[in-house]
Simulated assay, not measured.
Amino acid sequence: MSKVLILYYSTYGHIETMAYSVAEGARAAGAEVTVKRVPETAPEAIAKSAHFKLDQSAPIATVAELPNYDAIIIGCPTRFGRMPSQMSSFLDQAGGLWAKGALNGKVGGAFTSTATQHGGQEVTLFSIITNLLHFGMIIVGLPYSFQGQMTLNEIAGGSPYGATTIAGGQGERYPSTLDLDGAHFQGELIAQTAQKLCG
């Protein structure tokens, strides 16, 4: 049984919702799944005044535990076309793991959200994937075998580089069924890939 970590940062709850759908997909493939988040680095007063979702139930991850997993799937919203500082700060602390090659050969993936359809989803995914490649990880995206991302019938996230959702300018749009299906699909595919490599 492969061990999969869903590691996320979510400001308003959109990525948190996606993370649990990714986790359901990984569990459907028979993986042992852990969902954790990175620490909030914004001052509490600012986070509260901006209405950050601070009551998330997922425990806080540590960099030291990352080698314990066969696959790590990272999710975070975009900040001006790249990952936010909270996730970047967490990954920046993993230099010791990089130096030891502790994550070489593990499976990685990424998912994200943006306010608009053209708000930098693919660039944000690549900002995550770039880190994972530097760690020596094997990347699994959201292939077009997930046909839902090709729809023209509704606003939908999705990219061959990872599952996505569109949150709206005020955070008013939560992940649709189609967006969650994409996250589930990617989680399942990553867990299956990790199982093949570990098996």
Rank of each mutant, 00 (worst) to 15 (best):
V38S: 14
P39A: 01
P39W: 01
E40M: 00
T41I: 11
A42F: 12
A42W: 02
E44I: 14
A45T: 11
A45K: 12
I46V: 15
I46D: 11
I46M: 14
A47P: 12
S49M: 15
K53S: 11
L54Q: 05
L54C: 08
L54A: 06
D55A: 06
Q56Y: 06
Q56H: 10
Q56M: 12
A58R: 12
P59T: 07
A61Y: 06
A61D: 12
A61K: 09
A61Q: 10
V63W: 01
V63D: 00
V63E: 09
A64Y: 07
A64W: 01
E65K: 05
L66W: 00
P67I: 03
P67V: 06
N68F: 03
N68V: 02
I72T: 09
I73K: 13
I73V: 14
G75F: 03
P77R: 02
P77M: 03
T78Y: 01
T78C: 11
R79I: 00
R79H: 04
R79C: 02
R79N: 10
F80P: 08
G81A: 02
G81D: 08
R82E: 13
M83Q: 13
S85N: 12
Q86D: 15
M87V: 06
S89D: 14
S89Q: 12
S89R: 08
F90V: 05
D92C: 13
Q93L: 13
Q93I: 00
Q93V: 00
A94Y: 03
G95T: 02
W98S: 02
A99C: 05
K100L: 13
G101T: 03
A102R: 03
A102C: 09
N104A: 08
N104M: 01
N104K: 03
G105H: 08
G105C: 12
K106S: 13
K106A: 02
G108Q: 11
G108A: 14
G109K: 07
G109E: 07
A110K: 01
T112D: 14
T112W: 10
T112Y: 12
T112I: 02
T112L: 09
S113W: 03
A115D: 12
A115I: 08
T116Q: 07
T116C: 00
Q117S: 12
Q117P: 08
Q117H: 04
Q117Y: 07
H118A: 09
H118M: 11
H118L: 05
G120S: 08
Q121H: 06
E122K: 08
V123N: 15
T124F: 03
L125G: 10
F126Q: 15
F126T: 15
S127I: 09
S127M: 10
T130P: 05
T130C: 09
L132G: 05
L132E: 15
L132C: 07
H134N: 08
H134T: 10
H134S: 01
G136D: 03
M137K: 13
I138T: 14
I138F: 14
I139G: 09
L142Y: 08
P143L: 01
P143C: 09
Y144Q: 14
Y144R: 15
Y144E: 15
Y144H: 14
S145L: 04
S145P: 07
S145C: 10
F146V: 04
G148Y: 15
Q149D: 06
Q149A: 11
T151G: 04
L152Y: 06
L152A: 06
L152C: 03
N153M: 01
G157D: 13
